[in-house]
Nucleic acid binder design. Structure first.
Lengths: 233, 233
DNA sequence: GTGCAACATTGACCTAGGTCAAAAGGCTCA
DNA sequence: TGAGCCTTTTGACCTAGGTCAATGTTGCAC
């Protein structure tokens, strides 16, 4: 790595807390790395040896049971931070949902750097608090929402996160976008089966709330109505 | 407040990051407060004006839908930290499950203090990362586990948390304990109904894995077997 | 182009857990 | 000691979503 100046997420990742000098020092510790769809960066249960910033692409955090059930417990977008600084094995795996580019550090070197940079830790704390709030909203979804409420929530969430993480961060959300995951993975985020996901999508399509031009593409045609469903009102 | 020296959680709460001097300064900003069972400290959606450390008792963090469905998204025990430092309205309510005692600060004063004490922020970050991991484990439970797996997991979790937060922190867990919540609240943590909770408990009792001397008391008779169920293996 | 393999949809049926309703305990207060 | 009120348990029934099994799609290799 070297040219943080041209980094796509320079001003949105935790790096934004750093001065040009500090950034230079941090950049010596890390390097940019491409990850291809399906590639796993960290295995569930392994000692977490690396942390990273997402520059491009989308990755999942996931947990599995011994008998093969899987739950996706987080989806990370550009500018998000990956990993468990300050010790501990990773309780979830990290796998690319799309081709992606990350800015990767060994945990040891990152921890060392962070110890001397309170501003960085402060940004990390804020980010972690936000992530925790999001996780808790998702607990409500998993514990209490119906299948259609879940699907509506997911579509809006992806629309928002892709919107605010898009290069042209003008738009707060997108009305047309590419799903960064397949049906199975949607099910794994929502605690549903692939069949239920498919059925609910067709239902939303039949009700003219969305369009599905192809497997991956989604067009939101009636955001208001979709939001009403998502809110479980 | 004044005598942090005699505080039950002095060495386990985030305060442990502070020197006696610093602790003195912080203690001037906060005060101890009793909370009675059922009392709400923070309302869902309100500007989060306070943060606190739990000294005694157990509290819940909960989210509700417009139509009255509730999900408990967190349970906090002695030495745990409550609240959302650094801005934002609280996305969940905080309510006492048992009579409790907390050490409470206005968010503004706490934020100010934290800004000048990186060690405190560091502890807070670690705690938040742990809490996030716990939330994600719970997402797996809510998304993919069966009713009996959920109940087994909850009983073990409470046994562990009560054990490690008990004054006599000798025991890593307890084989006999008082549930800090009723059946409805167990359902709200687990994403189940009260009836299902009840039925599953009787099933575990009939299978001789637990005893239920009274409504609130639980005796774990066969931890091994309970763990096997909880792990969804 | 065609053939194949992976993904997605649809249909028929099943079941875990929800719902509704009725007992059965347990506390509290007199 | 018993009346009244909760909380919990139990039972009978129902349904959202899971399971299993075809049937369509789509994209890619050759």
């Amino acid at each position: 790595m070297s040219d943080c100046d041209t980094c796509l997420v320079r001003n949105r990742a935790i790096c934004a807390a750093l001065s040009p000098d500090e950034l230079g020092a941090l950049s010596k510790l890390g390097r940019k790395q491409m990850v291809t769809r399906g590639q796993t960066l960290v295995w569930e249960g392994d000692e977490a040896l690396v942390v990273a910033n997402v520059i491009q692409g989308v990755l999942k955090l996931s947990v599995s049971t011994a008998d093969g059930r899987e739950q996706i417990v987080g989806v990370v977008f550009p500018s998000d931070f990956i990993g468990r600084p300050f010790g501990k094995e990773s309780p979830y795996g990290v796998t690319a949902l799309t081709d992606a580019e990350v800015c990767i550090f060994t945990r040891a070197s990152f921890d060392g750097f962070a110890k001397d940079h309170p501003d960085l830790q402060h940004k990390l704390l804020q980010r972690t608090l936000d992530e925790l709030d999001r996780a808790r909203q998702w607990m409500m979804l998993l514990g209490r929402k119906t299948a259609s409420e879940r699907i509506a929530t997911l579509l809006l969430e992806i629309s928002n996160r892709l919107g605010s993480s898009s290069c042209s961060a003008i738009t707060p959300f997108l009305d047309e976008f590419e799903l960064p995951m397949d049906r199975q993975q949607m099910g794994d985020v929502l605690g549903l089966t692939i069949e239920t996901v498919s059925r609910q999508l067709t239902k939303l399509k039949d009700a003219d709330m969305i369009e599905l031009p192809d497997r991956r593409r989604v067009v939101i045609k009636d955001r208001r109505r979709l939001e009403n469903i998502a809110l479980a009102a």
